[in-house]
Design a protein around this nucleic acid. Structure first.
Lengths: 240, 240
DNA sequence: ACCGGAAATATCCTATAGGATTCATGGGGG
DNA sequence: CCCCCATGAATCCTATAGGATATTTCCGGT
């Protein structure tokens, strides 16, 4: 018999959970973190009982959390065989993702500019101010910047006034997959300045400028930061 | 004490399940049917233990099924208080939904036309032929037509070649919400002929015609079939 | 008669047990 | 040496039990 614990984990990841109202929620976040930080490798199997032991809970809430993670496409279920983490984004999937973002987000930015109101403007300024400090190079700052990037894009989608667009965008979990793919700590400053350009256009109520700023931001993100990860082959434009 | 069973059910809905590989899958379909057929009313509470008793299974697979149904937005969870079915689509939500569809589906139809290949063409023809027979007025035919409509639109999204677009469209579960809203048995014939116009443009490889045919289909669906359900007030265009 | 609070009931949430299936290991045959 | 099959272990899936929380019912006070 092996009472041996699961493979050793870095720092505190996977330790027994702090008390939450519902365990399944905590398990969801814990497993998401394990996958995002590559503690559980892409394509690896995810044992229900194993996770339950590792997190110190019973399999029941783990099942519920995994069912939700499946809809985020971080894991896939094979009946009677268990769950498995999805592989990292391929180049084709990355192209497809940015083609999709180019379809939705410039439209959302233009709508946000056309609909700008006081509350929205305040929220946008608050989000930008939260990242006033150019992120240092620590891991914590990295995660903070990633969180800001996520919140900013969701906020713009929100300000478009279309719940469908916002939820469709959120359900891509694109930041999750992108930051899972890779992170270059030097990208922060440029991304933040591009965000500022988008926000300026929205706050000034200029739909065309907002649309264009968002398009430029997405293309810069793709060509300058992500596409190079896949080598030097010629990069076709994701826009179809 | 009331050992009285749950509210009586029409025909066989909610009876013990036929044997499936994994119970959670069967529970998912059964509960979806209960909600779609308004056996469980919009906004009503959905008891986990109650469903388990009604379906003759234990609460464990019911939990898993409900977690998945939540991501389809047919139910919402309130921690420690249980699940509740979502209300029917409001007029604002319907507008938003069609604005979103107008953003994605005409684009998808154009892409499908530009990329048309033999396999895709065959699939498209097969789907149309499956609805050759103009649907009669029975309930079974209604469900068959609804299923065809769903498959047709998903197929066009699929043929666009963008997995993001296809899954984003599927995740709206729009047909599910629309057919839950209402169904007029006389709409079948016109919808099918509109489908044929879209398919013709795709098969002939004409992106502009495909885009336009899809746009016309969506607008007809909205203005002629759905919008009137909400009364006679002036209908503003969903396109923003 | 109406409102507020306490007991009773129902429900949710988590843990555990056991049957069924799949995966891993080791030995025998080609 | 490689392949195939049997055995054992691990895992999944479902059911059930019990503590915790929310809801309903009932009763007394104003």
């Amino acid at each position: 018999m092996r009472t041996a614990p699961a493979p050793p984990l870095p720092d505190g990841a996977g330790d027994p959970l702090p008390r939450r109202q519902v365990l399944a929620d905590g398990v969801y976040e814990a497993v998401k973190a394990l996958i995002m930080d590559h503690v559980i490798a892409p394509g690896a199997r995810v044992s229900i009982d194993g996770l339950a032991r590792r997190l110190g809970v019973s399999p029941t809430p783990v099942r519920e959390a995994l069912a939700r993670l499946e809809s985020a496409e971080l894991v896939v279920k094979e009946p009677l065989r268990g769950y498995r983490t999805t592989p990292l984004l391929s180049l084709e999937q990355l192209d497809d993702l940015y083609r999709f973002r180019l379809l939705l987000e410039p439209w959302a930015a233009a709508q946000a500019a056309a609909r700008a109101d006081a509350a929205g403007a305040a929220a946008l300024r608050a989000e930008l101010d939260s990242c006033q400090v150019p992120a240092a190079e620590s891991y914590a700052d990295y995660k903070a910047l990633a969180a800001h990037d996520t919140r900013f894009h969701v906020l713009v989608a929100e300000l478009s006034g279309s719940r469908q667009v916002r939820t469709a965008f959120e359900r891509t979990h694109c930041h999750l997959h992108i930051f899972r793919l890779y992170y270059d700590r030097r990208i922060g400053r440029k991304a933040v300045s591009e965000h500022r350009a988008i926000a300026d256009a929205v706050l000034r109520g200029d739909p065309d400028a907002a649309r264009e700023a968002m398009r430029a931001h997405l293309e810069a993100s793709y060509y300058e930061r992500l596409r190079p990860l896949f080598g030097e082959a010629a990069a076709p434009p994701p826009a179809g």
